[in-house]
């Protein structure tokens, strides 16, 4: 199928229908994500926000029934999760899993070098990698021992989120999805995480911020707000929409 793709778009999601188990969650969702922009998705519980993020990264829970996820001109719905990651899609998980026995540095170096190989670059040797990692760890205000601890094992909620941002910074993805990155963060952690995210803005990179609350949007300024209800985007607006949602709730919004 030949089709002209809009090169200003990072991702084009068209009529996406996704089920988890026996339940269809996304019911024909359409969403356009522009290059270099921050898109925020808000919506009530159970509307499909996390399912959308899972579907984009190819989570095994999700089954795409119909529709397309066009990423940089290519439909990725049949791609493996690692292929999507290597192509530059990154999901910051709401609940990052703990992996005992795999140290943080070893894991992250494996991921960074997998991406570098994919891009035809030389792998980072251990010393250079470690120096780089320590720099980001310091900037994020993480404890230095988190480098050598098992991946997310025994981390507090804030430490886990910082670790997600650390991975994001070192992997330098093009399309960043932040699933409830603000949940469980105190104000200091929220500020550190937000600064990490904002440091990644470069005019080309796109962000999809999934959140329940407007608080994070005080730190990461969105260009667009999308309201997701019952598996579809029902409204799209500018940053001013946040205030309206705060005052009137989701019920006030009809079809986009």
């Amino acid at each position: 199928m030949s089709e002209k793709r809009n090169i200003s778009r990072m991702m084009d999601i068209r009529e996406l229908k996704v089920k988890i188990g026996d339940k269809t969650i996304l019911k024909g969702l359409t969403l356009e994500l522009e290059k270099g922009k921050v898109h925020a998705i808000m919506g009530p519980n159970g509307s499909g926000k996390s399912t959308l993020s899972k579907a984009i990264v190819g989570h095994y829970d999700t089954e795409v029934l119909d529709g397309e996820i066009i990423y940089r001109g290519e439909n990725i719905v049949d791609k493996e999760p690692e292929e999507r990651a290597l192509d530059g899609i990154f999901l910051s998980f709401q609940h990052p899993v703990e992996v005992a026995g795999v140290n943080n540095a070893y894991f992250l170096r494996s991921a960074v070098n997998a991406k570098r190989r994919h891009e035809g670059k030389d792998e980072l040797n251990a010393a250079v990698f470690l120096r780089e990692m320590k720099k980001y760890v310091e900037e994020l205000g993480m404890q230095p021992d988190m480098i050598s601890r098992s991946l997310n094992e025994g981390f507090s909620g804030g430490e886990k989120k910082r670790n997600e941002i650390l991975q994001m910074q070192m992997l330098s993805p093009d399309m960043i999805i932040l699933d409830e990155i603000d949940s469980g963060l105190d104000i200091d952690a929220l500020r550190a995480v937000s600064e990490g995210i904002n440091s990644m803005k470069n005019g080309d990179r796109s962000f999809l911020v999934i959140t329940h609350y407007s608080r994070i949007l005080d730190y990461i300024k969105p260009d667009y707000i999308h309201v997701l209800k019952d598996g579809k985007i029902v409204h799209t607006g500018g940053p001013e929409l946040v205030a309206q949602l705060e005052e009137e709730g989701y019920e006030s919004l009809g079809e986009a």
């Binding site: 990264v57 989570h59 493996e80 999760p81 690692e82 990651a85 290597l86 999901l91 998980f93 990052p96 899993v97 992996v99 005992a100 026995g101 795999v102 894991f107 992250l108 494996s110 991921a111 997998a114 991406k115 994919h118 098992s150 991975q167 992997l171």
Partner: peptide, 19 residues
């Protein structure tokens, strides 16, 4: 989780077994 960071399924399995 490991695969979502670009690590192949084969390598991710090895990593978990090693862990």
């Amino acid at each position: 989780y490991l695969r979502s960071r670009g690590i192949s399924e084969v390598e991710a399995k090895k990593m978990l077994i090693q862990a």
